[in-house]
Design a binder for these strands. Structure first.
Length: 424
RNA sequence: GUGGGUGUAGCUCAAUUGGUUAGAGCACUGGGUUGUGGCCCCAGAGGCUGUCGGUUCGAGCCCGAUCACUCACCCCA
């Protein structure tokens, strides 16, 4: 019989790796809640239309990467390729904007994009996503980037850098787009095939190009920063000023143009050189028009997303793997003793003492080996002799010392030991 | 969607110009100790060499196809 395999690009996270995930998620929840963000959980599937309108019809995500399917009743649905559109939808649908001038939400969960998998990129991947609605000033932009930097630190990841940029507003971007288009066509045919295409469809994206000759030609290109309208310039300068006062290191990088249509003004990415081709471990920015475009009130919005798989890959490079060990292993000899050990170990677990036992009646040597491998600090040994005397041996695996306890005190004794683990 | 690389035991890898019984380390099981872990010693179990086809007296090895994994392009977290 042939075994069924997991879907390409959709990975199992096995117990051996899951410690990384739990650590990252716990750190993220703590930091986000500290900054006033509240968790929201939205469905993994939405109406296809939501993503088409929210992300942009002409983006790669919508054009060729979506898991779209027809529901049995004829509706077109899609597995979410990102979280922002869903959170905006829920915010609008439940009228959450009514009770306060601004709101902060976060979500942690799986996203789906039908791309060819490679290192740090999978078809089901996981994001930590945060959104703020209702604040249009530069303060929240800076706070969000400051928070992201703190989050990296709390997770335990170093050697990453924060790159920021501004895309201007639709008004000044339109002016700049024409200036850039003129520059690009004046330069002639020196660009790579992709850039020749980009300069017609989405000229800003040429700055994303990795081809050396293109980068050279672009050195003298006009910069968006020099073509900002007065409001956009003031906003960007205030963001930078806040970051500097917060002591959050950053670099201005005009190449941060972001792939989704809805971004404007502030954009940022957290970048590393340790993940192969995938340099961005997180990114975000401002998208003031999106809520209105999705049928909601005309409120400003800022948000970011971080890739959990990428965080895990980085964390694996610099920290040792977290391990999960029981406090005690309950070894027994003989059927009667094993039956008693079974009952007592359930009592221990009921009291919150993490306990492992032998179910199979194996040799004591084999049980000791298993106990050692499990990392248990203590082994309880109950043989027929001990059982007859209503006693049990308590072995400290580290010091290799053993003492005899009355059988009916082990619950209290181990409970005390367990408590000392937290208040030594 | 396009291109490169790799598929041998649970894991990491060997296997002479194509040659007869496909090996090792780690992990696993049992024993060395009538009831005591890590180290050591002994033994055992574990494989349709990804799959299908071709060349050959003979294929883990050569050829083709296919599938999977992987890296990269595009794009993105």
């Amino acid at each position: 019989m042939e075994a069924v395999q997991a879907v390409r690009g959709m990975n199992d996270i096995l117990p051996e790796q899951v410690g990384w995930w739990q650590g990252i998620e716990a750190a993220a929840r703590k930091v986000l809640e500290n900054f006033g963000y509240r968790e929201m959980r939205t469905p993994v599937a939405e109406k296809l239309e939501l993503f088409a309108r929210g992300i942009g019809e002409s983006t790669d995500i919508v054009e060729k990467e979506m898991y779209a399917f027809e529901d049995r009743n004829g509706d077109w649905l899609a597995l979410r390729p990102e979280a922002t559109a869903s959170i905006v939808r829920a915010y609008v649908q439940h009228g959450l904007h009514g009770d306060s001038s601004y709101h902060k939400f976060y979500q942690i969960g799986p996203m789906f994009r039908h791309e060819r998998p490679q290192k740090g990129r999978y078809r089901q991947f996981h994001q930590i996503d945060a959104e703020v609605f209702g604040l249009d000033g530069p303060m929240i932009d800076a706070e969000m980037m400051h928070m992201v930097s703190l989050l990296m630190e709390r997770i335990g990841i170093s050697g990453v850098s924060l790159n920021i940029n501004t895309l201007g507003c639709p008004k000044c971007r339109q002016v700049y787009r024409e200036v850039l288009k003129k520059f690009l066509s004046d330069k002639g045919d020196g660009f790579c095939e992709d850039c020749m295409r980009r300069r017609e469809t989405n000229p800003l994206r040429v700055f994303d190009c990795k081809v050396k000759s293109c980068a050279q030609l672009l050195e003298s290109a006009p910069q968006l920063i020099d073509h900002l309208c007065e409001d956009c310039r003031a906003h960007f300068e205030a963001v930078r000023d806040h970051l500097e006062k917060l002591g959050t290191p950053y670099a201005v990088n005009p190449r941060i143009v972001r792939g989704l249509d809805y971004y404007m003004r502030t954009t940022f990415e957290v970048i590393t050189d340790r993940l192969g081709a995938q340099s961005a471990i997180g990114g975000g920015g401002r998208y003031d028009g999106l809520v209105r475009d999705l049928g909601g009130p005309d409120v400003a919005a800022v948000g970011f997303a971080m890739g959990l798989e990428r965080l895990v890959l980085l964390l694996e490079q610099e920290k040792t793997k977290p391990v999960r060990s029981p406090l005690c292993f309950f070894a027994s000899l003989g059927d009667q003793a094993r039956a008693s050990a079974f009952l007592l170990s359930q009592k221990l677990r009921e009291r919150g003492v993490e306990t492992e036992i032998d179910y199979e009646g194996r040799s004591l040597k084999s049980q000791m080996r298993r106990a050692d491998k499990s990392g248990a600090k203590y082994v309880l040994i109950l043989g027929e002799d001990e059982l007859a005397r209503r006693e049990v041996q308590l072995r400290d695996m580290l010091t290799k010392t053993q003492r005899i306890l009355p059988l009916d005190t082990i619950l209290e004794t181990l409970e005390t030991i367990e408590a000392e683990k937290f208040n030594p």
